[in-house]
């Protein structure tokens, strides 16, 4: 920054605007979530009241706690399943030369970019056929369509960056591909696994279309569906207080995780993006 003062001021003003725009909506949601009654319906730029009633209302309702559990279970299972399949698959894609590898990678990328509505009808039939409609398994099954290609793709780029000579040393030592994965690469890859898993978890946690379509009872809803369909005492009244409180509850853990892992997340996002 060797430029003159006015341009420096302009630069920092731009920075301030960016930060303000990024942070303000969530800040305002937090401020509102602590207001009830008439305070809710006055525009407050600064927190004036600190009332936990909305939080008590949301957490007190059995269905919302149930939704959180559902979401944790579904996202956890989806990510575990995807990582399990992706580790071996990405090794094959990153490390073994075979014909059709490029085409396969492109196909996997294409699947992750799929319009999910295009498989909705077919998945609906499959979910009905398997008898898992309105159970968490319907979501775990359907979320695989985006978590699996994503994890495969990102792990492949991470795996390609591991040094070739370490693998060759292991081959000379007599390690089979399975041993190379489990005893040499996995211990080196765990940071990548955490990143990929976290990104996939966020994706599964936020999903809405499948969760909306494949659940019918309130107790089976995931968090996004629960928030979207949260209704008040009467049809006309939108319970903004509880909605925003619920929003804050499910977002704060995500933001904390993202901030803790921000460097790794940026690396993971760009590995899935720029390199492919």
């Amino acid at each position: 920054m060797t430029r003159n003062l006015p341009s420096r001021i302009a630069f920092y003003a731009l920075v301030a605007v960016i930060v303000l725009f990024a942070v303000f909506p969530f800040y305002y949601a937090i401020v509102t979530s602590f207001s009830t009654g008439t305070a809710l319906f006055q525009v407050n730029y600064w927190p004036k009241v600190f009332d936990l009633a909305n939080y008590k209302a949301v957490l007190g309702s059995r269905n919302f706690s149930r939704s959180i559990l559902n979401s944790v279970f579904i996202a956890g299972c989806t990510v575990g399943f995807a990582l399990f399949l992706a580790v071996t698959a990405s090794y094959a894609l990153a490390r073994v030369r075979f014909r059709g590898r490029g085409l396969l990678l492109m196909t996997i990328l294409a699947v992750s970019m799929f319009p999910q509505i295009a498989v909705l009808a077919g998945l609906f039939e499959l979910v009905r056929f398997l008898g898992i409609f309105n159970t968490p398994w319907a979501m775990i099954l359907s979320y695989t369509i985006f978590t699996l290609p994503f994890t495969v793709w990102v792990l492949t780029t991470f795996m390609q960056d591991l040094p070739v000579e370490i693998e060759e040393a292991a081959i000379v030592d007599g390690a089979s591909p399975w041993v190379i994965i489990t005893r040499v690469f996995l211990p080196l890859l765990w940071p990548a696994l955490v990143t990929t898993g976290l990104l996939a978890f966020i994706g599964a946690w936020n999903e809405f279309l499948f969760a909306l379509t494949f659940t019918s009872s309130e107790s089976m809803r995931t968090v996004p569906v629960a928030i979207a369909l949260l209704s008040g005492a009467s049809q006309q009244e939108i319970p903004w207080g509880p909605i925003l409180a619920a929003s804050v509850i499910v977002t704060v853990p995500l933001i904390v995780l993202v901030l803790i892992f921000q460097r790794k997340i940026v690396a993971g996002l760009t590995a899935g993006g720029v390199k492919g």
Binding site: A22, P25, F26, A29, I202, W205, N206, F208, V223, P224, V225, I227, A228, S247, V250, T251, L254, I255, L257, V258
Partner: peptide, 8 residues
């Protein structure tokens, strides 16, 4: 903004 669920 990226981390906040779309619904939220």
């Amino acid at each position: 903004p990226w981390a906040i669920p779309t619904i939220v």
